[in-house]
Design a protein around this nucleic acid. Structure first.
Lengths: 226, 226
DNA sequence: TACTGCATACTTGCATACTAGTAAATACAA
DNA sequence: TTGTATTTACTAGTATGCAAGTATGCAGTA
């Protein structure tokens, strides 16, 4: 973790420090359990303790950091129960969303989703893992948008933060082709205007993480907590 | 808003200030749009700006306050889209939970929920509105608990914060009897071990707020934002 | 009366000094 | 060598001072 944020001193620095640290944590450049220091980070980016401290407070309220008074601040371990909760909530919500739009899925929507599938295949073909992760998000956002529920997607994004770190400590490269096939199954359900089929495809897709989580938490117990 | 928090100076004051202000805001003792001041609140409870400021930062990241640099800090207006999103998420998640437990709802669970219904009827009989609100939460928590998803309920509680304020600006007293009947319908679905019936009863119940929201936002436009 | 410009009194953002609590290294004794 | 007391370095929590942006009221002008 040597990189620095690009600070714009014409606007408040504390939120910029927060955005930077959040990104660093979610990418596991600072691994769970790593120690943070107000002074050390302040020195590195050229500000006092105060803005760094305010960033820590927000990270702690997100569950991404843990402030132990008079002891130190640490990157939170990944909470297995938080991951499972976020997954369950995603499944419940996104299966409802896909059901809502299935009945009158028009050609424009199907074309949009088919296009997203093409982009996903291209990313996998050129081995662009980070790009695929972004496109995966784009696909799910497109469905929320079609349901007119962009705000709901915003809430889900917040919940996903714990799950995000999982991708970076995966033992083996995750099977992007499998995920694309599952996306395609969802689109097929929509193309057929079959709510039940689209819903089941979505549920199956969002249960995928359940396959990897036990193995992950076994092989990296130091990164997890109950 | 004349009350003061009971500060325990053996532990950090900033989180106590946060808890107190959050409670005050959610009970609408400080209405949406009201102005907060670091100095003024600090003086009132006998601490400096710093702990108050840290409380403001957390409230802002919860969406309950809005910090306008060099201008002031204000209680956030109730976001209609946030309320609608929280409602949609609740419906999706809780209908899934009730479906999960319907198939093997045992006598102990039914007895527990029947008991909750009795307590709700008692609260209404003695006109204890605040008590009923708490019991309403207890009922839904009991269902989450039966599904082994206490953590999920914790997440939902965070989302509900925007909805909480609605209860306190209701034009007319809300129809507690109607809500109890809806709760009872959910229990009937569980007693019959009928997942579909229990789910539909839960969905109907959680759509109730949709009836009041338009009227509320029309009659108190100053408390709402899109 | 209506408008402009400025003085003034606020606000939050940031830096810094100080306090108190923790933990680890060290000195010392058995 | 082992166990204990003490010192020391470090942490976050709080208070406070200063800087810079904003709103407001008032004086002066047309």
């Amino acid at each position: 973790m040597t990189a620095q944020p690009n600070l714009d001193f014409t606007i408040s620095t504390a939120p910029q420090v927060y955005d930077w640290l959040r990104d660093v944590i979610l990418r596991c450049e600072l691994p769970p359990g790593a120690r943070l220091s107000e002074i050390e980070i302040g020195k590195r980016i050229g500000v006092s303790r105060q803005p760094v401290r305010e960033a820590f407070i927000r990270l702690a309220s997100d569950g991404l950091a843990e402030i132990r008074p008079q002891r130190g601040t640490y990157i939170s371990a990944i909470s297995v129960s938080a991951v499972l909760s976020a997954r369950l909530i995603r499944e419940a919500v996104e299966s409802d969303l896909v059901r809502m739009i299935a009945a009158d899925a028009d050609a424009a929507l199907i074309a949009r989703l088919d296009h997203e599938l093409d982009r996903q295949r291209e990313a996998v073909a050129r081995g662009d893992t980070d790009g695929f992760v972004r496109l995966d998000d784009d696909f799910h956002y497109a469905i929320a948008q079609a349901a007119g529920q962009e705000t709901v997607w915003g809430v889900l994004e917040g919940l996903k933060s714990q799950m995000n770190r999982l991708r970076y400590i995966t033992v083996r490269a995750f099977d992007a082709q499998k995920l694309i096939d599952q996306h395609a199954a969802i689109v097929e359900g929509l193309r057929a205007r079959d709510p039940g089929r689209a819903e089941q495809a979505m549920r199956l897709h969002l249960r995928e993480v359940l396959n990897d989580l036990p193995e992950l938490s076994r092989s990296h117990p130091e990164f997890f907590k109950p």
